[in-house]
Design a protein around this nucleic acid. Sequence first.
DNA 1: ATGCGGACGGAAACCGTTTGCCACGGGACG
DNA 2: CGTCCCGTGGCAAACGGTTTCCGTCCGCAT
Lengths: 370, 370
Amino acid sequence: MAQAKRGASTKARNRARPAPQSPAILLDVAAAARVSLATASRALDPDSDHPVSASTRERVQAAAARLSYHPNPMARALRARRTPTIAVVVHDVSDPYFAEIVRGATHTASTHGFLTVMCNSDRDPATELRYVQMLCLSRVAGVLFAGGGLEEPTYRRAMRGFIRSISEYGGAIVALAPRAEAWAAEVPDNRGGARLVTEHLLSLGHRSIAMIGGPPSIRTSRERERGYLEAMDAAGADPYVATSDFSRSGGAEAMSRVLARRERRITAVFVATDSMAIGALTELRRRGLEVPDDISVAGFDDIPGLDVVHPSLTTVRVPMAEIGSAGVTRLLALLNGEPGRPRVRVHPVTLMVRDSTAPPRRQRISRARS
Amino acid sequence: MAQAKRGASTKARNRARPAPQSPAILLDVAAAARVSLATASRALDPDSDHPVSASTRERVQAAAARLSYHPNPMARALRARRTPTIAVVVHDVSDPYFAEIVRGATHTASTHGFLTVMCNSDRDPATELRYVQMLCLSRVAGVLFAGGGLEEPTYRRAMRGFIRSISEYGGAIVALAPRAEAWAAEVPDNRGGARLVTEHLLSLGHRSIAMIGGPPSIRTSRERERGYLEAMDAAGADPYVATSDFSRSGGAEAMSRVLARRERRITAVFVATDSMAIGALTELRRRGLEVPDDISVAGFDDIPGLDVVHPSLTTVRVPMAEIGSAGVTRLLALLNGEPGRPRVRVHPVTLMVRDSTAPPRRQRISRARS
DNA sequence: ATGCGGACGGAAACCGTTTGCCACGGGACG
DNA sequence: CGTCCCGTGGCAAACGGTTTCCGTCCGCAT
């Protein structure tokens, strides 16, 4: 049963009736403004290079407003070969460090009309790669890598493949932690922060300062370790580093290794992340050691809620939400063709002195270096 | 300059050359398998109702595998009028409660091939509504509301509008907290948990148990309060509730109001959320009161990291990740047309007794009810 | 021999937008 | 007065799939 067709053109697309409840499409706007689809599209696009007369544009805009027209993102995405969404890849959202980054990123993404998809790798490289493949297939506009990458060759090869295909379709990549890859990056000043906190411990009079570091395969760990080593070296103090994984249990385990070391009594520990530091703290409490009386402890990151652990933890404040936000800003700049200088921008960090650090109780003559 | 066109059909679509680096499209697969686009599509779709001979299907699948073909989600979405993504709307990702939910949700979403978009309302109804509008425009397959909704009429009207248009295009909605709306829901047993923890305090010998509740406009608050009132009533004890907002400072502020109440010495407090409980704890410490010696404190939620606050907090464990995961499962069921029974499924919670609760120090004769 | 229905494959419409290319009209200019 | 060009607008072809509709071929019953 042929229904009445509106429009005189031979093969013009038409809808039988712009069913009132279903959302208006561009065709409806064009019909209402009595212009073609092309003109309607151009009139609504503020930065189209095709000229449209003021009166026509006004008519179209009025029609669009009247029908409360919103362009269909999927159709646009299909045409533009790119979705108006960004992705943020983290190791674990329930880690406050990443949660803050995600918060900052989604916030500024949404102010620019972008949706943010969450990719939680659970610290599993295979999961991360699966996510990146999905992202690359669904042509997200850009990807933020919040965690550091692995150095493992298979992983890196696979990752490189996906990244290449992402940049082939014009997607942007930004790292939020130091990475081997030459991407644009917004990173915290890991080395400077580590130096800062080590210098704080030194200035309190500590000489025997151990460090509990993260996995050496992760660049963030290495940078923080480097800052510690530099500060120790500058003060002429002997460093000692025990590494473990970025978790509370890892911190506890490394702490007991530090304590097991007999040759020298440690009076202070710098721990590479707050989570690990909390683990270290519980291990110390378990052994009946008092912080900071018996030993000072300092962390890194300043994750929220640190002021209520006991004793409140001295640490280095990393502006995580700001970094997430800056990452998105950078991503959008990249999409606009602006490279953004410098390629890796480092964000300053600040020392937060709280109760877990104090001068060493019994001032002992530090053993002269042989 | 008319190029050589492959294929004999008058108007068949064709690409000049399937440029090796650009990903294969269905047309390439069809050409490689020497079938039409339609047949290729059907051969690759396992639950198409159109029959395809085994040999053809095999040929197409082989070609798809050889070209490592992946269907373009945007094209699919345009046709199906729905994107293969779900959204989760939370008040604040950096709140561990929500972070856990997000973690659970993204995990099971990804195992079903769905991407998850994060919507962080920052507890601002306007932001939440803006997000929901974006979601509805981009035709997400479903939305998970992790936080409770407001009772405010303007908000509810706007929300109802968006929800209606989401369900009009076949999207699903699931609530992860009690809501006025008649949606499918996966919620924790707020009332039972509150009763449980109150009974725990009663069984320790407390009679004067105050509650610090959340905003009365939020259903979760009201349910937890109800559980408390029921347990108190059953024990014949007098309840007292001070409400504030769901934050550490809110908890601290309500705590001081409870302490200011002179007429009856309070020996225990049940606080509606762990965050508020931590605020209450710091307020107590500030005043020099010992927990649990002077006063017992219990929370609700069991957010991660509670075992390191001092003293470690007795609370009610809510399986947040499981709820997030169940929400996604429910969403997918809804999309498949299965209603899922019952409409609101309540997840059991468990009491976690730690160090912040103990019997009242000085056993006083509880004042008989007049 | 004729009719019929099911299995299979293909052409084309469709989802909603953007854009390359062409057409048309009029003012400027030779 | 003819041309050229610019300002404006429209047609139709993408983008990459899914799905409807139709045609063909075959086996089988009448």
